[in-house]
């Protein structure tokens, strides 16, 4: 498995900008006195000299004196660059085909399958002990958009039959997306048949988004009782999709 080690959020640390504050450089201007000069010539020479000294002084001040500290203009960069990276260093995974990365909680999930474009994570619900699964796949954005990516991923799930949109409006996924980009989302229901031939209900939640280059889709699958907004499955799925870093950055 080409599973990376723990992510290092510090790798993204940026260096502080140089201080904008400079020390004030003091200086003195002294009048230069030549020989004794008289009359109008003296006055002209004095005024000329005075202006020259002033000019030199201004030039010196302009060169060596500190500039006034620039004010931070509203909503113009006035500090280190800012971007988003997850706080918690979880297990890092990178798509060898598309270059996007994600993090998943290694204590909750293990990689069951992985491909150049995505992976399948499996875990267990802590309350029921049931298996819970998160599938993530990607495609070139020029070929597949977010909605289509969800459809494709759902259609490639084996073992779930009678797949349909969840009719309960209470289960609708509003504002679905990946990696802090809005895209598509939806809730689905299906029927699962065990090797013993017993059918039972499964719930699926899907999200997808694109950065214009790559489209990433995620489907979380669990027993109906192990899904929903307060379930571990959905909490972890949210964290995973929020951790997606697009290859071109934000």
């Amino acid at each position: 498995m080409s599973v990376g080690g723990p992510g290092d959020p510090g790798a993204a640390a940026t260096s502080a900008p140089p201080s904008l504050r400079g020390a004030y450089v003091g200086h003195q201007l002294r009048a230069l006195t030549g020989g004794r000069l008289g009359g109008r010539r003296t006055l002209v020479a004095f005024v000329g000299g005075f202006l020259a000294v002033i000019g030199i002084g201004v030039a010196v001040v302009a060169i060596v004196a500190p500039t006034t500290k620039p004010l931070c203009q509203p909503y113009k960069p006035c500090g280190p660059p800012r971007y988003v990276k997850p706080l918690v260093a979880e297990t890092l995974w990178r798509s060898s085909q598309f270059g996007y990365t994600l993090e998943f909680p290694g204590n909750d999930f293990a990689i069951a399958q992985q491909f150049p474009d995505g992976l399948t994570l499996s875990g267990k619900d802590p309350s029921s002990g049931n298996s819970i699964v998160i599938l993530i796949r990607a495609a070139a954005a020029g070929q597949v958009g977010p909605s289509r990516a969800v459809t494709n991923l759902l259609s490639n799930i084996n073992g779930v039959t009678q797949l349909a949109t969840d009719p309960d409006p209470a289960n609708a996924i509003l504002g679905g997306g990946i990696g802090h980009r809005l895209g598509a989302g939806g809730a689905y229901v299906g029927s699962e048949t065990s090797p013993q031939g017993v059918s039972s209900d499964a719930s699926l939640a899907a999200e997808s988004a694109t950065d214009g280059r790559v489209t990433v889709a995620m489907v979380a699958v669990g027993a109906t009782g192990d899904t929903g907004p307060t379930s571990l499955l959905y909490q972890d799925a949210d964290s995973i999709v929020n951790s997606v870093q697009w290859p071109a950055g934000p």
């Binding site: 002990g129 073992g159 699962e192």
Partner: peptide, 12 residues
């Protein structure tokens, strides 16, 4: 739920 779990584990 356990049935679903088993099936999911096998099929998915």
């Amino acid at each position: 739920g356990r049935v679903v779990a088993a099936a999911l584990a096998l099929a998915l």
